[in-house]
Structures are given as C-alpha cells and as structure tokens.
Design a binder for these strands. Structure first.
Length: 506
RNA sequence: GGUCCGUUCGUCUAGGGGUUAGGACACCAGAUUUUCAUUCUGGUAACACGGGUUCGAUUCCCGUACGGACUACCA
C-alpha cells in the first residue's frame, strides 16, 4: 500500500457544517490508522463566496473535535502554500498543457449567450454537440482566437470531453461506477478571472500533494468521471488517488439532506462551535456551546455511516483509529438523530472524573456570580452525576442548591399539600435545628421518627418535603440534598414553604 | 426532465441463499429507588414492491416504486 496521505479540503464560505466534521474525521481516522498524513487544504477559489473568519472557524472546529492536522493551512508543510488562492499561478500551466495537447480549449461565450443556449436546448449541456455552435477555439479561426486572447477578451478554458467513452471509477465504498462520457459536459477549468475551478485545482493539488485517498461527500460522485478524465489527460493516471464517496447526512425526519433550517426548527445545533454570520450578524449556537462533549460528538459522528461490526458502541478516538476501515462505511445516507447524540453525551459525562465535572459546575456558578466551596461542589456532582446529559445540567437541574425556591409546583401542592404534610413539616422543622451536623442518615432517621410519632406514612409527605426544599417534584436523593444544604437552610426553606402555602389548605 | 447513487425495526445499524433476522437509541411495561432520574429485567417493532435464478431468497439478477445527489465561470 502506498503512503497514506489524505486531505480535508473545505471552502471558507461559512461555518463548517457538522457533516464536514464527519468527512474530516473519516479522513483523519484513515490517516492515523496507517501512520499517514492528514492535510488541510483551503479551497478558496471562489472570491465571491469567501467569508472572512470561516477559515479560522474551520481550524478551531477541527481542533475542538480533536482532529489534528499534520500538514496544511495553519501548520505548513512541504507542499505549501495550502490555500488555493495562494497557489493561483500554479494551475495555469496545467490548463495550458491541456489546451496545447488538444484536451481543452478556449471559450469566449458570454453569460447571456450561454443562457440562451440553455433555454433553446432541452437538457442543455456544453458538450460535443453544443460545442460546435458556440464561440470557442474550435469554431473560431486560429487568427480570431489569437486576436481575442491578445486583445484581452474574457475567456474560460473548458475541458474537451470525448463523445462516447466509458469512464470507470473505482470507488472504495460503492465499487465500480461506470459513466458514459457523453453525460459529462465540457466543464470550465479556468474561470475568466484567472482562477481555476474546483475540478482543476482539486486534481492538480491532489496530484502535487501526493494524495493517496480522496474521501469526500457523495455530492462529488457525479463529477468524479470528470476528475478521472483530468488525471488521464494530465498523464497522472498511475498516481491517481483512490476515491471513497461518503453517504450524506440526512435530516431527522422528512426528506432531504441535513440543513441548518431543520436543525433550527428541531432545536439542535448544526455547527460545531458558535458562529456569527458576518453579513447578517446572526448567531448560530454550536454543539460545544450546547454542552456536547467533543469525544461524544466524534463517537456519534463516526457511527453515522460506519460501524465496527461488533457490538461495542463506545469508542475513544484511539479505539476508532484502531477499528476503522473504509470497507465498513455504509452506502446509504444516514438520518441525523440528535437523541442518539445526547445518549453518547450522557455516557461520556459519566466517564469523567468528578474533578472535571466540578469544573463544569464552577463555570456555571461563575456566570451567575455564585460562590461555592469545593467540598459542596463535589457533593453536588456526586448526587447529580448519573442524572445529567450536559455539563450545564449540573447548574440547571441543581439551582436549588444555591437559590431557595420562591414558588412551588402548583399541581403537586393541589394534590398533596394537606394537614398531614403541614404537621410533619412543622415538627420536622422544629427538631432539625437540633441536629448538627445534618447528615443524610441523621435527616432520614429524624424524618422517620417524626412521621412515626404522628402516625403518618413517610412516603405520603416525602414529596412535600422535597417540594419545600427544592420547589419541584423531582431531583436527586432528598436526604443527601438536605445534607448538602445544611440544617439552617433546610429549616429556613421549610419555614418559608409553611408560611407561603398556609393559605392553600384553608 | 436527464445522469448517477441508494433502500433491513420510528432512527443508527449487524447479518447474509436455509437464522427464533442480532445489537444500540427512542418508546412501552415490570422490579428497585417510599418521588423523578439512574440501574436491572422484559416487550412492541424491519428485510420497499413485482418478476426471475434456485430444492430454497431478505440475501444473487432484472424491473418498478420511493429516497438522495448532481445537472454554474459554487464548492
């Protein structure tokens, strides 16, 4: 097997889509698996769509995801530059070679000429039959062409695609794909602004950078024959990379591929990191900011279209690298299931050390300007750890550890707040102040003592106790919750509940 | 419209000429937690359809349907 050199080659036209992260991941896994090289190339040949900040965003996103770049934009390397706009002068000679050898030609058609051609011809494409009716170096005399070129007329260079030839693509995922060249049109290789199009730049750079495997989205499959033809005409057939066209990520329900609109509608992110669109100023929340852990995202993304063939589901990056093979990538598009992503996230949170989880809680507390001892934070983490899906849940589901409730769940009050509850809570409140320190077991013993002496079942008033202390009807172990709060606070909260809800029973 | 790609539970998927078609998420139920969550146990649920080939097809072939991508001087 030849040296594995793969590339992730996004365009800086906006935030990197989560599907792009998956493409980068598969490239990365293959590279690491074979001790190869992961290259980042920025394909910015369309100045019109260039978005400032997008390149930096791509770099930061990959770094967050744990996908390390060995060579390319941001790190440099032997084939620099890795930004196509900076390689502009390079492409010209290859286009020229194609023209000189009769495999490409100059075309002078204006936009409106092209438009009217397309209108006049059903299923129009700029191919052998149309070519002869347009303004190009086939229909114009050599003098005319020379004259136009020297006078600075706008022109493009198009590939001359043969009329009826079988083009075979060996795809590592799909097997052999055969397309007749008559289905391929004379694609523009060099634009009138002197920039190459994707097709030329991509093939030239992959060749020069000695890319061994082109792993990219399925949307490129239709133009793969064109690329194969280019390798052939450029004389690079022996060095042509192997292709692997990945199935696409589909929207969770309904039809079509996953889009930002769907994600917005269903309330989940689609970009790895927060992204503010420089044109509109609109902020799109990222997976990171929503509390998704990079390890969980990677694990989830890897399994969208790939699986190891075993029943193991939790995979670290290193384990993925070890298990990954292109052969086990599926052919069909995969729906994006955010619930599965959340499950992965929950799994990963549980594997984290308490110290790390404590940091999450402190992050939230800092934003709220709330002080907390390390000891208390640790205890909260311990009781909450099995209950949370996201790092911010420690705070969001555990606010009551810091803020006493001012309102109570009305449904529960209506159903369970009665004389018995008031009697137990009043007695409990009076006796709890005597216990110091208030441990979970002491709190429980006392509660049982009080309910027994009043002849009331503990279970019947437990929910009211919880409600007085947390304001809600569910939460972590109540006795531990009271221990964490300490008895002055518990006493205060029960007192407040008793007072506030007094009117309700009358 | 044309070209290409695809199709196993609701979702991600394993499997593969003869299987009780397996797992995970989600969902439902029971247990435990005197609540909720967790955990445990169990359950519902799939080979798109029609023709071949074959002793036998979900698996191979061909059609159809459905889905997807592409069809720019965008990538």
């Amino acid at each position: 097997m030849r040296e594995v050199r793969v590339r992730f080659a996004p365009s800086p036209t906006g935030a990197l889509h989560i599907g792009g992260v998956r493409t980068a991941l598969y490239n990365y896994l293959l590279a690491r698996k074979h001790n190869g090289t992961m290259i980042l190339r920025i394909e910015d040949t369309d100045q019109g769509r260039y978005v400032p900040g997008a390149e930096d965003y791509i770099l930061r996103s990959l770094s967050w995801a744990g996908i390390k770049i060995d060579e390319g934009v941001g790190v440099g390397g032997p084939h620099a530059p890795y930004r196509q706009s900076e390689r502009k002068p390079l492409y010209r000679q290859y286009a020229q070679k194609l023209v000189d050898e009769g495999n490409a030609y100059y075309a002078f058609d204006t936009e409106s000429e092209l438009e009217s051609m397309r209108k006049a011809t059903p299923n129009a494409q700029y191919d052998g039959t149309i070519r002869v009716k347009m303004n190009n170096s086939f229909t114009l005399s050599a003098e005319e062409v020379a004259q136009k070129l020297s006078s600075g007329d706008k022109y493009v260079i198009r590939l001359k695609v043969p009329g009826n030839e079988e083009v075979r693509i060996q795809d590592l995922i799909r097997g052999e794909v055969i397309v007749n060249s008559s289905q391929v049109d004379d694609k523009v290789l060099m634009k009138s602004d002197g920039m190459p199009t994707y097709h030329l730049a991509n093939v030239v750079d992959d060749y020069l950078m000695k890319i061994s495997h082109v792993i990219r989205g399925e949307e490129w499959l239709p133009s793969a024959p064109l690329h194969v033809l280019l390798y052939k005409y450029l004389g690079w057939e022996k060095d042509m990379p192997q292709f692997a066209h990945l199935p696409l990520l589909l929207k969770p329900d309904g039809n079509g591929k996953l889009s930002k609109r769907d994600a917005d509608k269903m309330g989940f992110p689609i970009f790895p990191l927060n992204w503010t669109d420089p044109a509109s100023g609109e902020l799109a929340k990222g997976f990171r900011e929503n509390g998704y852990l990079p390890e969980a995202m990677i694990n989830f993304l890897a399994f969208l279209g790939w699986n190891p063939g075993t029943e193991q589901e939790i995979f670290s990056m290193d384990q993925l690298i070890d298990a990954f093979t292109l052969e086990r990538i599926g052919k069909a598009g995969a729906r994006f299931d955010i619930q599965k992503a959340q499950w992965f996230n929950q799994q990963y949170i549980r594997t984290k050390a308490d110290e790390e989880l404590t940091v999450y809680l402190f992050d939230s507390l800092q934003k709220e300007n709330i002080e907390c001892t390390l000891e208390k934070a640790h205890k909260i983490i311990t009781v909450m750890k099995e209950r949370v899906t996201f790092p911010q849940d420690f705070w969001e589901q555990g606010k009551f550890f810091f803020i006493a409730p001012t309102a109570f769940d009305e449904q529960i009050v209506a159903k369970k707040w009665n004389d018995d509850a008031v009697r137990v809570l009043s007695a409990y409140k009076n006796e709890i102040k005597l216990i110091n320190p208030l441990t979970a077991t002491a709190a429980k013993d006392l509660l049982e003592k009080v309910t027994a002496s009043l002849g009331i079942k503990t279970g019947q008033i437990l929910q009211m106790l919880r409600m007085s202390i947390t304001g809600g009807a569910s939460g972590p172990d109540l006795m531990m919750t009271m221990e964490i709060l300490g008895n002055p606070e518990v006493e205060k909260r029960i007192g407040y509940a008793l007072e506030t809800l007094k009117v309700k029973i009358a």
